[in-house]
Simulated scan of single mutants.
Amino acid sequence: MNWTYRNVGEIWPNASKLFQIPPAPSGHEYLKDFLVTVQSSEVQAYECLRLARWGEATGLRVTCPRCGKVAWNKSSDRAKHRWRCVTKSMYEKHQETKGYKTGGHSRNGCGCTFYDTKGTPFERLRISLGLVFLSLYLPGKEVDALLRSLGDEVTATALTKVLRKLQQEQHGDLRHRMRCLARYFCGRLLWGPHNALLSRSGGQLLRKKLYRSMITHRLEQAEKKDALSELPKHYKKIRSLLGQFERMQFAVLHDRPVDIPRGLEIYQSLMAEVIALVPRKAA
């Protein structure tokens, strides 16, 4: 599944259903360990930021903040990615270097280079982005209180400043999307090495949803496999029907008798084969 802020709630519950809030006294050490994991999970955090900003049902569609054109990834080996809005000359040089033909397609971007955080309150972020997602997931000021209880006043103060910027009106849409993706970010960590912090009902709910999602995914894959196996048959039938049409057209051009009812049957069969090629979801 390609996660987006629209569908993430179908699987991942919010904190009130999944988390033990407040945790049992015996779970306080687990909570401190969880906080450490959150701060070290920068790859997952930036993945969720990209999904919040550019995630679509078909995958990521990263657009330039300056001109709106689709950008290329320039540093996929880092947590925070760097992107390039490719100009026409850059694109042609790239194709030439790789030995590819440019063809009719080209790029016409502005040449801007930017990071995942461009245009967000996180451009000069001095703390873990994972802490931001955790703060959007847990209610109230749970994260701030936990940091201060551990004596980390500096991080707590920095986090408050970032969250205050995120509350500004111009970031309202980003804040909403990140709050949705926070379920995914925190849920995966809780379901994995920190499941001791799961509430009993939350764990059961998540297990049930993940199981249903797995079954649905397998069924969809099976349907796609069946559809792909049928494609050659449909194409062969279409070629045959088109051949019959061509012969009827040849007969008309040479003033030969044509069976009109038969022509209608061929047309209906051809339309049926074309419709069969349309993916079921798109249909």
Rank of each mutant, 00 (worst) to 15 (best):
N195R: 15
T113C: 08
C112F: 12
V43M: 11
F34W: 10
A158V: 05
N108A: 09
G111D: 05
G104F: 13
L35N: 00
G109F: 04
A79E: 08
I266D: 09
G99K: 01
V132S: 00
A15C: 08
S229F: 12
A52I: 04
V278S: 04
L129Y: 06
G192C: 02
W83S: 01
P139N: 09
S229T: 14
A251L: 12
G119M: 07
A52H: 04
H217C: 08
G130K: 01
R124Q: 15
T102G: 01
S75D: 15
K101R: 13
T87E: 00
A71Q: 07
K233T: 15
L146P: 03
T102M: 03
L242V: 15
I260R: 09
M90D: 13
K224H: 11
P257V: 01
E169R: 05
Q204R: 14
K88Y: 03
Q20F: 05
N108L: 03
E10F: 08
T155R: 02
P261I: 06
K225D: 09
W3E: 03
R280W: 14
G243P: 10
L147W: 00
G111S: 07
S199N: 06
S106T: 15
Y91R: 04
Q170M: 07
Q44V: 06
A283T: 11
V132G: 01
P23Y: 08
V162Q: 02
R200E: 14
P25N: 08
L228R: 15
W3L: 10
R188G: 06
L197F: 12
L190Q: 01
A45S: 06
E169M: 03
L277N: 06
E29C: 07
L206V: 03
V8I: 15
L210A: 10
L206A: 02
E153I: 08
L197A: 12
L219S: 12
G109E: 03
Q249T: 13
A57P: 07
K80P: 00
E10D: 15
Q268S: 15
M90K: 02
P65H: 05
Y115H: 10
K17L: 15
P193Q: 00
L35H: 00
L134G: 02
L125E: 00
D255Q: 12
L18T: 00
G203E: 03
E265T: 13
L51S: 07
K208M: 11
A222L: 10
Q249D: 12
A276R: 13
K69I: 05
P65Q: 04
S240H: 14
S26Y: 09
H176W: 09
L131F: 07
H94F: 11
G109T: 03
E123F: 06
Y267K: 10
E96M: 07
R82T: 14
L159F: 04
Q170K: 14
V70K: 11
K281H: 13
M248G: 09
Q204H: 09
Q204C: 06
N108I: 05
R183A: 02
K118T: 13
G203M: 08
F133Y: 08
V143N: 02
L198I: 06
D255G: 02
A156G: 02
L206Y: 03
R84Y: 09
Q167K: 11
R212F: 14
L146E: 05
C186F: 01
L210F: 10
W72C: 04
G103N: 05
Q167W: 04
P25C: 04
D152E: 10
L146H: 06
W83R: 02
V258H: 04
K161V: 08
I21E: 05
D116P: 01
